[in-house]
């Protein structure tokens, strides 16, 4: 079973919910797919045993074969190639590695060469298997690295995916093929606005989902009203508590700071499984 944790708005508590859940149930593999700023490892504290470099193919032009016809530039939807009168420029940081340019080059003048975009690291912490991706600084292409992280899904485990914030490509890549998605939100106008966007994504991707309201006693009740109206289950409420924030800043999950939460996370997990027939 693959369970992803996403949010829409950033900073609502995805990582603390994902890691607290991981520490509350057994037989878990956790994948941190927020490759632009992974932080689950701060809470899971895995011993990294292995790493693997991840590359994408970028074009290299053989100018002795190129006749500057411009076909490669025409098919590149990311504008990563400029064909000038007697020179072809490649902008690797704009390239998504789709391979269209080399496929369509009539002169066979384009070779694809590997460009490293980041690393995937694996490890273990007690019984939890851990995988995360780290995108190289300055790199903009998160999805190929997220794909590489997800290749290591070990499907006999309960998989928890810590997704990046937002609703764009990296999020889609992280949550697709999930059996269920937990949307973590906060009861503020921003939280609700971005929750609504995230809900639209879930419906488009046909992923069953529920909401966790973090800092649930702050803000207003508009998020509750929205969930009720839309028939979205509220899986858990985590009231604002200074102790949780203090624990977080020391790298502790909620269940380590306040052990009574362990039962709540287990209960949530049970409900998700029951209501979705997993």
């Amino acid at each position: 079973m693959i369970l992803s944790v996403a949010s829409g708005k950033g900073g609502t508590g995805k990582t603390i919910v994902a890691t607290s859940l991981a520490l509350s149930i057994s037989n878990v593999q956790i994948l941190d797919c927020d490759v632009e700023e992974p932080n689950s490892h701060i809470f899971i504290k895995p011993e990294i045993a292995n790493k693997e470099n991840v590359c994408i193919p970028v074009p290299r032009i053989d100018e002795t074969k190129c006749n500057f016809c411009g076909k490669c530039q025409e098919v590149c939807v990311y504008n990563a190639i400029a064909v000038l009168k007697d020179k072809v420029l490649v902008f690797p940081e704009l390239c998504h590695g789709c391979g269209s340019c080399s496929y369509f080059c009539p002169e066979n003048a384009i070779k694809e060469v590997d460009k490293e975009i980041g690393v995937v690291e694996f490890g273990k912490s007690n019984d939890i298997q851990f995988v995360h991706g780290k995108l190289n600084i300055g790199e903009a292409m998160a999805p190929p690295l997220i794909k590489a992280v997800k290749k290591h899904i070990y499907s006999i485990k309960t998989i928890i995916i810590d997704a990046p914030p937002g609703t764009s490509c990296p999020v889609i890549e992280s949550i697709k093929k999930s059996d269920f998605c937990i949307l973590v939100t906060e009861p503020t106008p921003f939280g609700l606005n971005d929750l609504i966007l995230a809900v639209e994504v879930m419906r488009k991707l046909n992923i069953p989902f529920g909401v966790v309201i973090n800092r649930s006693d702050l803000g207003d009740d508009k998020t509750d009203q929205y969930c009720q109206k839309q028939n979205i289950p509220v899986l858990m409420r985590i009231p604002f508590e200074r102790k949780i924030a203090e624990g977080y800043s020391r790298g502790e999950t909620i269940v380590e700071t306040l052990p009574e939460y362990k039962e709540k996370f287990q209960e949530m997990f049970r409900k998700i499984k029951e209501n979705n027939n997993f």
Binding site: N79, A82, V83, K85, L89, L94
Partner: peptide, 15 residues
């Protein structure tokens, strides 16, 4: 309104 790589596109247009 292009998503990205606009500098490359416009640069090429003018070139």
């Amino acid at each position: 309104d292009s998503m990205g790589g606009v500098g490359v596109q416009s640069g090429q247009l003018i070139a």
